[in-house]
Amino acid sequence: MSIFTQGRIFDLVTLLVVTGLMGLYMHRARSGMKVKIRPIAGFAAIDEAIGRAAEMGKPVHFTPGFGGLVAATFAGLEVLGYVARLTAQYDVRLVVTVSQAETFAVTEQVMRQAYLEAGKPEAFRPEDCRFISTDQWAYASGVIGVLYREKVASNIMIGQFAAEALILAEAGNTVGAIQIAGTTNAYQIPFFVVACDYVILGEEMFAAGAHFTNNVVHLGSLRAEDLVKAACIAIMAIGAVLTTAGANFLTTIMGK
């Protein structure tokens, strides 16, 4: 009997190759390799959104979405760290709404740390990090209520979103907030595109750490991600040509 789980051998090899590439490029970035990243309009607009809130004397709202502690939520929390530091510096109130209990604990810690780094730990108000509900529609109605009652100037929604995405974005639009949204859920991106001012598309979210902090680990990881994407495109093109020509060995290997 094989020690490997059948049907997952190719996945394992791919994961090892991807891990190796990421390790290599993180190491290279730490050793001084220059990695240039293109500006992402959605991230650049965060400063503008917080500046607007400061001018209007109104709060900023942030939510990392409906997901638990998944990669998209972590990307959202990375952005939250930056947003919280900036709001602390400019004395702008930041209201954060969370739908999952485990995310709530982490979110509160991220906010505390950000206020500490901004040199204003006393400005952090625990009641502004709000757990709403694990129920999707209760969460949506809770966020709508916060947007209306707090009269937010800016609404930032970056993380994992599902069917509630349009409801939140339209509520933000109704209160006249500048809106920046991002998700990896391909089905919800179109809703954000039509309802928000700036949209961070899919994997752009994972560039948050590299964009805001120029963290070399994130920059190296981004370079490796780009190489893996190029490899995926090449495999798709080769696979399409081979399958059209009747050669199935690539699909056989990938099914192992």
Binding site: A72, A75, G81, V106, Q113, G202, G209, E225, K229
Partner: peptide, 24 residues
């Protein structure tokens, strides 16, 4: 596909302890 590659990158950074900022 691009999102899945990003997922792998974030997960790897968490597993090897290079993503500590995301949890405070």
């Amino acid at each position: 596909i691009a999102g899945a590659i990003g997922f792998i990158a974030v997960s790897l950074r968490i597993i090897v302890g290079l993503e500590r900022r995301a949890y405070g």
